[in-house]
Nucleic acid binder design. Sequence first.
DNA 1: CCTTGACCTGGAGCGCGCTCCAGGGTTTTC
DNA 2: GAAAACCCTGGAGCGCGCTCCAGGTCAAGG
Lengths: 119, 119
Amino acid sequence: MATYSPAQAAEVSGFSIDTLRYYEREGILRPIARTSSGHRAYTDADLGWLDLVHCLRDTGMPIADLKRYAELSLDEATLAARVALLEEHDRRVQESIDALRRQQERLREKIAWYREQGV
Amino acid sequence: MATYSPAQAAEVSGFSIDTLRYYEREGILRPIARTSSGHRAYTDADLGWLDLVHCLRDTGMPIADLKRYAELSLDEATLAARVALLEEHDRRVQESIDALRRQQERLREKIAWYREQGV
DNA sequence: CCTTGACCTGGAGCGCGCTCCAGGGTTTTC
DNA sequence: GAAAACCCTGGAGCGCGCTCCAGGTCAAGG
């Protein structure tokens, strides 16, 4: 199995090296394997998880929730709970998309109104 | 013209009293009229502006941009610039909606994958 | 009158999510 | 074998957008 240096992991995942360390400290990443000299060696599994983390962060999941999800992932028996968590998050994402669209509609009405005033 | 106490303005606008004062300090609200005793008296025009502010904040416009917009509003001759600013913002809102939808799609694929694994 | 509650100001504090730094080891390149 | 590049740790700092506080003024009800 291939491993990745911190710089490579940052490159692939799209997070900065500092952010990767921060996530590890926060318990969002399980402790990353180390080389004999103590340098981190990220695995494909780590990068796969980081890919999901990116998706969840981009959709506004807070760090604290991500941490809870990561803790659940340590126990195989929590699969259903994890799916439930993702589905709950999906609902919240849908709500924020809807809210955004509603406000965008109001914004466009405002612009149209300006246009009518002869701008 | 009706006026509104800080508490009423907060009630109507949906911002807290502290936030209203903060916005005034930041120059997002022009200086609010005062009663003889120095208490703020918000006008209908102030509340109308706050309504737009709420829309812009809800769609993610930063405080700094809002301030620029407010400064433009002081000069009648900047109507076109203001509309341009709103349209630019509308584009950014559209982009974030699109990004959110793309990530939501990935999230749903992940959930579907879990489901296939027999959750 | 006196109490109660809303309001005032200037400035400090906070929660979030990073980001940066000092001071030190390691590994790669020439 | 020396310089340059990369990595380590613990902890401080930061940008944003509020939110709260101390210490004081003002106004309406009983």
